[in-house]
Amino acid sequence: MLLDRRSLNPKEKLQRENDMLTYEDLFAVALVISAFLALHLDETIYAIISFAAALTLLSGLYFLMNAPFAAIFQLIIAVGAVAVFFLASEMLTPKKGLPQKMRGKILGLLIASVLAVLPLVVDLNVEASPKSHSLFFASALWEYRALDVIAQGIVVLTLALGIVMVLKRRRGK
């Protein structure tokens, strides 16, 4: 990617780009590996860190797909909120008794590597359709889905109140 491509003709440039690893490929491989390790690692704290890494990589992938709003939202909501929730619950759950065997760790890494080969084989470049029509994010959100946004706000508020009520009642008991 860092090679000087000014001297190449367009065909050679395209061929060179197809041969080289792109950022999308690297993000996709790291995403698959971290998602698998999030499930495979026995220690919950490492699993949570791996899961947070997977969501961060997913956010980077969204950014590379020219979807900055989705990327930022994914980063804030998913990585921030979910990782904090998991860390909070980790504090209240028991530690794992027996340490995971080295053989299991190596096996997990091997399986994750095999799964990660797939994004390398396929070409992960998104090309916009020539028929595409421009619809701005703000108008898509507030003109097409305004009712959904308001309804969802109410749903999320109700869920938050429900959680508070459930935990409060249990504490009272």
Partner: peptide, 26 residues
């Protein structure tokens, strides 16, 4: 959304993620 050049997909993602996070909290 990226392929079609339509921002509505990102809006749906935001709606889906919000509900998903709330469900995770529950």
């Amino acid at each position: 959304s990226s392929i079609l050049g339509d921002q509505l997909g990102q809006v749906f993602l935001i709606l889906a993620l919000s509900v998903d996070t709330a469900i995770t909290a529950v």
